[in-house]
């Protein structure tokens, strides 16, 4: 694990930090058809996702909430990647990112920007931060939206 750990400075300074800085610009859209909240009890990340769904296409999405840099960066990349995507594509991309982060499975082309999250794999407790926006979205676009949580149990 240690030998494989990427340069943390690289993870934060070059990529995550830049993306996360854009979080405040990905505000909820003017028209909102779906809302969903997600939280990570392990660290206190909390996202309120607002979505404008036109038929089966994501017209726009944005966020409010307080979360760590990795979560914010992932949320920004998700908003940019999924603008104009269909609900089916959103589910598929979410599944593929999960497989990439957990198991190193290949990323599809449209998810190329999220490759910078790869370094998170060396910090298993942070995977939940990277995945929270995506899990919140997939719950939001389910027929019966539920509250998203990336951990079922918080440690004392």
């Amino acid at each position: 694990m240690n030998a494989a750990a990427p340069d943390l400075q690289d993870l934060y300074r070059r990529t995550i930090k830049g993306q996360a800085a854009l979080f405040s610009q990905r505000r909820p859209p003017a028209i909102v058809t779906h809302r969903c909240e997600g939280s990570n009890p392990n660290c206190g990340d909390h996202l309120a996702l607002a979505l404008h769904l036109e038929d089966v296409a994501i017209a726009a999405l944005g966020f409010e909430g307080e979360s760590c840099l990795i979560c914010r960066a992932s949320a920004v990349m998700m908003a940019d990647t999924l603008a104009g995507a269909t609900v089916a594509q959103a589910h598929e991309f979410s599944r593929r990112l999960d497989a990439f982060l957990h198991d190193g499975q290949p990323l599809p082309g449209p998810l190329a920007t999220t490759r910078c999250l790869e370094g998170v794999r060396a910090y298993p407790s942070r995977l939940s931060c990277a995945l929270l926006p995506w899990q919140t979205l997939t719950r939001c676009i389910q027929p019966d939206p539920t509250y998203a949580t990336t951990h079922l149990e918080a440690k004392p």
Partner: peptide, 8 residues
């Protein structure tokens, strides 16, 4: 954020 501090 505390979580980023913890990782570093």
């Amino acid at each position: 954020h505390p979580h980023d501090i913890g990782t570093i």
